[in-house]
């Protein structure tokens, strides 16, 4: 019995979404902070061009998986948009994490055969 598995053709999109949502799972964040956070926590392995982050965040927001909100700055500067994971997003994150586990479980035995 196996659950959903990540399809190879959706690897890139799913990987980016999962990274962003996992970062948001640690708390509300601004767009650029997410990119910095992901890069630093992965020791530079996942280096997002921040520009690619907006379509991901806006798509997740459209699906109701994350919620964007605007906050005023205490120093009177420009308002910033913050993102937080919704309850639906948390459920989706758990499902996707399981799907990636399943993918890895199937993927590694095939690759490890290579000598």
């Amino acid at each position: 019995m196996t659950g959903r598995i990540v399809e190879p053709q959706e690897l890139s999109r799913s990987c980016n979404e999962l990274l962003v949502m996992a970062a948001l799972n640690r708390g509300m964040s601004h767009g650029y902070q997410l990119a910095v956070d992901i890069e630093e926590r992965s020791d530079g392995a996942f280096r997002f061009n921040h520009g690619t982050l907006y379509p991901i965040l806006h798509r997740l927001e459209e699906k109701g998986l994350v919620a964007g909100s605007w906050s005023d700055r205490s120093d009177g500067g420009r308002r910033r948009k913050s993102y937080a994971l919704t309850e639906k997003g948390r459920k989706y994150l758990r499902t996707e994490r399981a799907a990636w586990h399943e993918f890895a479980r199937r993927f590694w035995p095939m690759v490890e055969e290579v000598r």
């Binding site: 601004h30 767009g31 910095v36 921040h50 420009r78 308002r79 910033r80 948009k81």
Partner: peptide, 16 residues
């Protein structure tokens, strides 16, 4: 809306 969001992030990233 997109321009406003990017403008704010641009200023913050520069400050960072």
């Amino acid at each position: 809306r997109v321009v406003i969001e990017v403008a704010a992030d641009l200023a913050d990233l520069e400050a960072l």
